[in-house]
């Protein structure tokens, strides 16, 4: 059909069955969730599917927080079966570890994780992950893993937009050949072309430590719903929860934003 081009240039994947490419969409996670509902209503079977947007106009982070779009950022959402049992709650941290490892390898960077799964380079945010999941009354579940990744944007561009805590692949010094055309998207899809829930069967405390932006003994504060907890980083639990030594003893934190670290 004339006028229709394949942005992925005909490449295929070993695990992903469908790639849906949208030039612009409000939120790839919302599109993914609508597709899941349709798949389950029509076939009761989830197919590994990725939704890609060149531009995401109202992407969101934790609790609806807006994700400021850059002119050239990638937004990708992956539909995956939600692993059962204890692996369920580990999915966001496992996805973060898989992306930190994969992006470091693909772009020759040192990508670190800010707990639980913000992707940092030089302590600035390169990308973020938001997992939205649901289980039915039979216990079967699905998850949508949304990834936002800043591709282009020089330090000057980012600072002029007030994004002093953000970085991009370009700002991090990735070679221009790796940023041309669909190369960044292709690299990201390669990382996601694996069952994310199985990404790294290693115990989480060790796997997280290998890519952590926090070192043992680092002071940090965590904000959650108006509450703040300050303490010293002691690693993560087997489920990926944050272990913090505070004046009251060790606390395990399951949700919140690390605001000072």
């Amino acid at each position: 059909m004339s006028g229709v081009t394949d942005p992925l240039e005909g490449r295929s994947f070993s695990h992903i069955e469908n790639v849906i490419y949208l030039p612009s969409t409000p939120s790839t996670n919302d599109v993914a969730k609508a597709i899941v509902e349709k798949m389950l209503a029509e076939t009761e079977d989830l197919r590994p599917t990725i939704i890609v947007a060149r531009e995401q106009t109202t992407g969101h982070g934790r609790m609806g927080r807006s994700w400021t779009p850059l002119p050239e950022a990638l937004a990708v959402s992956v539909i995956v079966p939600w692993p059962e049992g204890p692996e369920r709650v580990r999915l966001p941290v496992r996805a973060g570890i898989a992306l930190a490892r994969g992006l470091s390898r693909a772009f020759a960077l040192e990508v670190r994780l800010k707990w639980p799964n913000d992707l940092l380079v030089n302590r600035r945010k390169l990308g973020g992950i938001l997992v939205e999941a649901r289980a039915n009354d039979e216990g079967e579940g699905w998850a949508v893993v949304g990834v936002g990744l800043n591709v282009r944007g020089t330090r000057k561009d980012l600072d002029s937009r007030g994004l002093r805590d953000a970085t991009s692949l370009e700002d991090a010094g990735v070679a221009s050949t790796k940023l041309a055309g669909v190369a960044p998207l292709s690299a990201l899809l390669d990382i996601l072309d694996a069952p994310l829930g199985e990404a790294g069967k290693d115990p989480l405390p060790e796997a997280f430590a290998a890519v952590s932006a926090h070192g043992p003994g680092d002071a940090m504060s965590v904000m959650d719903a108006g509450r703040s907890v300050s303490g010293v980083f002691r690693g993560v639990t087997s489920d990926g929860a944050l272990r913090l030594s505070t004046r009251r003893g060790e606390e395990t934190i399951v949700s919140g934003d690390v605001v000072l670290f």
Binding site: R62, V89, L91, P92, E132, A133, R134, A143, A241, S255
Partner: peptide, 21 residues
């Protein structure tokens, strides 16, 4: 109705939608 989202329980940036069963 059955299937309606009732709330979210969040852990580690996993937004777990709980539905009416």
């Amino acid at each position: 109705e059955k299937g309606k989202t009732l709330c979210i329980v969040e852990a580690m940036k996993l937004m777990n939608e709980i539905e009416a069963d």
